[in-house]
Nucleic acid binder design. Structure first.
Length: 443
RNA sequence: GACCCCAUCGUCCAGCGGUCAGGACAUCAGGUUUUCAUCCUGGAAACACGGGUUCGAUUCCCGUUGGGGUCGCCA
C-alpha cells in the first residue's frame, strides 16, 4: 500500500502556522514513505471561501515549496458524492432522518453510531478509547440538504485514497465519528496521527493576538521559507540527538512519528529569528542581493548602481537578519536624506576634541592619496598617534558624522564605499550641525 | 461539569532503569573588534508532588496537582 497523506485546510484568507505545520508533517511523512502528499481545499463555507482565500492557501504552499503531488480536490465540487454516501447510509440503516431537537427546520440526516465502545490507534498519542455512552449520533446532512464536515471529510478521504490522516489534535474527538463513518461506508479507516497544538506563552492556542500567526506575515516580515519550515518542523518533532539545522533531505530521512512530541509546544519567535539568521548567512551572496535590492526598492531607495549596492551588502556582512531590515540598516548608503540618531550623534560629538579632530581628519582625507579602507585606517591611526589620542575618540565621531548612527559595518570599509566626496560633504554638514547644537538656545 | 490528552532548565528538544541529567534559543559575566553584528570562553538555569515496582527511578505503574483539548444542523 503506498502512503497517501493530505493537507485539508478550509480557506479563511490566512494560513495559520499550526495548520501549515500539519502540512509540513504530511509532506515530510509522505516523502519519507515514498508516497504522495495531497491537498484538499475544504471550501464548503461559501461565505469565507473566496477565490482570494483559496489563493492564500496556494501561495503559502508555493512559498514553502510543499505543493501537492496531485491536483487539489475542491470539496465544494463534491456535494453529489457526499449526498450519495448519505443515501447509502440511510438505506443500509446506518443513518436516519429526524427533525433533531424539534427545531421545525425540517429533517436532517443523522448518523447512527455503532453503540459499542470505539478505539483507534494514534501514531502519536497511542491507543485511544471512548465508551459507547460518550459516543452520540450526529448530523451528517443538514435540514437544508448540505453535507456536514464529518461526512464530507470522510467521503473525500476515501475518494482520495488517503492512508494517513495527520492533523491537529483538536480533531481527536472527531476521530471516533470518522472511524465509525469509514466502517459504515465499507472503507478501511486510515491511520491517524494527531499533532499537539502550538501555544503562546500562556499555554493557550497561539493566535493572531500573540504576534505573527499566519504564513503570509512571516513572508512579509522577511523570513526565509526554509527557516520557517525548519523551525516549524522542529516545533514538536526532533530527529534525535542535538541536531537542529537540517536540510529538507535530512528531515525527510529522519522523520518519524515516534519522535513527535505529544505535548503542546510554545512558539518562540526569538529562536525562529536566530534560525533565520543561520539560513540567511548560508545563502550565497548572489541570492541575497535580489532580496536586499527588493527591500531597498520597497522603500524608494532602489540604487542606480547595483555594483555599488553589492559592495554595501558585502561590507554589511551578516548584520542584516531579515530582508525587510535592509533599507533601514543601509539608508545612508543610498541617500543624503538619511535619518540621524540624535542621541548617538550628540554622544559622539560630546567626546573631547571631537569637532577639532573631525575637521583635521577631513582636511587629511581630502588630500589622501588613496581612499582604500586599509589606507584610511592607517591615516586615522597615524593622526591619533600624532595627537596622542586613542582611536576610539576619532572613530566614533567620524562614524556618527558620515552615517548618522553608531552601528554599522567597519568604519573604514564604510568610508571607502561612500567615497571621498560624500564623506567630505557629510563631515562638513555634521560639523555645522554640531555647532548648531552647541550654540545657546534662543527663541 | 463530563470525557480525553499532556507534564525535563524561562523556551524548544535529547534522555528510552544506573548520566557530574546533554544541546540549542534566550539570559548573565568575560575576551576579540573602531561601533554593532559575528566569533571565542565561562556561568546561572530543569526532572511538578506523593505513593508504589525495583538492588536502583527523570525513565515503568497508580494517584494528586497543574495545564490544555472536546463536548454545534462550524470546520
Amino acid at each position: 500500500m503506498t502512503v497517501r497523506t493530505r493537507f485539508a485546510p478550509s480557506p479563511t484568507g490566512h494560513v495559520h502556522i499550526g495548520n501549515i505545520r500539519a502540512a509540513i508533517y504530511n509532506w515530510l511523512f509522505a516523502r519519507r514513505a515514498g508516497g504522495k502528499y495531497l491537498l484538499r481545499i475544504e471550501d464548503t463555507d461559501r461565505e469565507r471561501s473566496t477565490p482570494e482565500a483559496v489563493e492564500a492557501v496556494h501561495a503559502a504552499l508555493r512559498w514553502l515549496a510543499i505543493e501537492p503531488d496531485e491536483p487539489p480536490m475542491y470539496q465544494s465540487t463534491r456535494r453529489e458524492a457526499h449526498l450519495a454516501a448519505a443515501e447509502k447510509l440511510l438505506s443500509s440503516g446506518r443513518a436516519y432522518r429526524e427533525d433533531k431537537g424539534g427545531t421545525g427546520k425540517g429533517e436532517c440526516v443523522i448518523f447512527r453510531m455503532p453503540g459499542t465502545d470505539m478505539r483507534f490507534h494514534d501514531e502519536i498519542k497511542g491507543d485511544l478509547v471512548k465508551p459507547a455512552a460518550d459516543l452520540k449520533d450526529f448530523v451528517i446532512v443538514r435540514s437544508d440538504g448540505s453535507p456536514v464536515f464529518h461526512l464530507a471529510n470522510v467521503v473525500d478521504d476515501i475518494a482520495m485514497g488517503v492512508t494517513h490522516v495527520i492533523r491537529g489534535d483538536d480533531h481527536i474527538e472527531n476521530t471516533y465519528r470518522h472511524v465509525a463513518l469509514f466502517e459504515a461506508l465499507g472503507a478501511p479507516a486510515p491511520r491517524y496521527a494527531h499533532l499537539p497544538m502550538i501555544v503562546n506563552a500562556q499555554g493557550k492556542p497561539y493566535s493572531k493576538r500573540d504576534g505573527a500567526a499566519y504564513v503570509g506575515e512571516f513572508r512579509e516580515r522577511g523570513f526565509l521559507a526554509d527557516a520557517l519550515f525548519n523551525y516549524l518542523a522542529l516545533l514538536g518533532w526532533s530527529p534525535g540527538g542535538d541536531r537542529e539545522l537540517l536540510s529538507r533531505a535530512e528531515m525527510i530521512e529522519l522523520f518519524d512519528f515516534a519522535r513527535v512530541q505529544s505535548s503542546p509546544a510554545q512558539f518562540d519567535l526569538r529562536k525562529l529569528l536566530w534560525m533565520n539568521g543561520e539560513y540567511m548567512r548560508r545563502l550565497p551572496l548572489a541570492e541575497r542581493e535580489a532580496q536586499h535590492l527588493a527591500d531597498l526598492a520597497r522603500h524608494g531607495l532602489a540604487p542606480a548602481d547595483t555594483a555599488y549596492a553589492r559592495r554595501v551588502f558585502e561590507i554589511m556582512g551578516d548584520r542584516i537578519k531579515l530582508f525587510t531590515d535592509t533599507a533601514a540598516q543601509t539608508v545612508y548608503f543610498f541617500t543624503e536624506d538619511y535619518p540621524v540618531d540624535d542621541r548617538a550623534f550628540r554622544k559622539a560629538m560630546a567626546r573631547e576634541g571631537a569637532q577639532e579632530h573631525l575637521a583635521e581628519i577631513a582636511r587629511r582625507l581630502a588630500t589622501a592619496p588613496s581612499f582604500a579602507a586599509a589606507d584610511l585606517e592607517n591615516l586615522v591611526r597615524a593622526y591619533g598617534e600624532e595627537r596622542g589620542v586613542k582611536i576610539g575618540q576619532l572613530v566614533h565621531p567620524l562614524r556618527a558624522a558620515v552615517s548618522g548612527t553608531d552601528v554599522g559595518p567597519g568604519l573604514f570599509e564604510m568610508l571607502e564605499t561612500l567615497g571621498r566626496e560624500r564623506v567630505a560633504a557629510r563631515i562638513a554638514r555634521a560639523l555645522d550641525r554640531a555647532r548648531a547644537l552647541a550654540a545657546p538656545a534662543h527663541d
